[in-house]
């Protein structure tokens, strides 16, 4: 077992380095010097082709891996290379003057603006205040959705009355763009904080409830039978079997839900906001301060990504049996 683990680790690293070096060669070739192709000798090009081919093969199996398991192997190195290349391209494009700063300011300008908004503020609020308000709205709505959507989704899964009741409501409003019902929410709830949180809440609610419901559907009937024949009551089956089985999908629903939350943030902060990342971006766009727009987008992206990492960590800790 131990030997196996070590082997696995060593092999993983070896594999990763070959992958990333092959990848880097390919990247730089296509990005900078496509003309070098004739210079490559025949044998080299064969190995290069083989290496590229290997990236897309079913793959020789590493110890501990199953042959042909879809998408096996690490992709982190490739992702980092992709991200760095994009930033590099951005850098080159702006410093070479291919695009005007009005359309795409340089990374340096964005970082400077980041520092300025952090310390001095933009549109009567500092970056921390903008971020704080937005997080309050998104996570507030998320928490509300968590305590309502998950129980309702479970209830829809286990009870046909609940399913009949909620299904048409959720399925009707779910595909609507939040901007379509924003005016109605404002007419009903005013332009205060409530309408903003409710708008985000509605966007999070549907995917979260539907995931919880799908989780209930995914429970193995044998496990329910086993519990009943050990004397479980209906409530015990819901609590000990159905809730536990649904947990992986509930967590997936939370990840999808918070994503919808961030997507809806800008819409929610369109009307009568004093602060918030969405408000900041909209306000900056109005005055064509493009570097603030880009900075705001990056801040939203980074927060959303960090939260997703946290959720993935929680998934590994809470449902280690997922997919087994």
């Amino acid at each position: 077992m131990m030997a196996n683990k070590t082997l696995d680790g060593a092999d993983l690293m070896a594999d990763d380095t070959t992958n990333s070096s092959a990848r880097t060669t390919a990247e730089s070739k296509s990005a900078e010097a496509p003309v070098t192709k004739p210079a490559v000798t025949q044998t080299q090009s064969v190995t290069l082709l083989q290496r590229l081919g290997k990236l897309f093969a079913a793959g020789p199996v590493k110890p501990g891996d199953s042959f042909g398991a879809p998408g096996q192997g690490r992709s982190l190195a490739i992702s980092i290379v992709t991200a760095l290349s994009l930033i590099g391209l951005w850098f080159v494009a702006t410093s070479a003057g291919w695009v005007k700063p009005l359309f795409l300011p340089s990374p340096v300008a964005v970082v400077e603006r980041f520092w300025e908004v952090l310390t001095e503020g933009f549109a009567n609020a500092t970056l921390l205040e903008h971020t704080g308000w937005s997080m309050l709205r998104v996570f507030g709505a998320f928490a509300l959705a968590l305590v309502t959507a998950v129980p309702i989704g479970i209830f829809m899964g286990v009870n046909r009355v609940a399913r009949g009741l909620f299904d048409p409501i959720i399925e009707f409003y779910r595909p609507l763009p939040p901007l379509a019902y924003l005016p109605l929410v404002i007419i009903w709830l005013g332009i205060g904080e409530t309408s903003k949180i409710v708008l985000i809440y509605m966007a999070i609610f549907a995917p979260m409830a539907l995931s919880a419901r799908a989780g209930v559907k995914s429970v193995a009937i044998e496990q329910i039978h086993a519990a009943y024949s050990m004397g479980a009551s209906r409530w015990q089956v819901v609590r000990h079997i159905i809730l536990k089985s649904a947990l992986p999908e509930i967590l997936t629903g939370m990840r999808i839900g918070i994503g919808f939350g961030w997507t809806t943030l800008v819409a929610a902060e369109m009307v009568a906001a004093q602060a918030g990342l969405g408000f900041m971006v909209l306000n900056a766009a109005e005055f064509l301060v493009t570097d603030v727009v880009i900075m705001g987008i990056i801040v939203i992206g980074v927060i959303a990504y960090l939260f997703d990492l946290l959720m993935r960590y929680a998934e590994r800790k809470l449902v280690p049996w997922k997919g087994r």
Partner: peptide, 19 residues
Amino acid sequence: AGPGKERGVVFQKHALLPW
């Protein structure tokens, strides 16, 4: 009618609880 704890079952596919 239905299952009851006076009738214990060992399943063909074990039906254990992975959590």
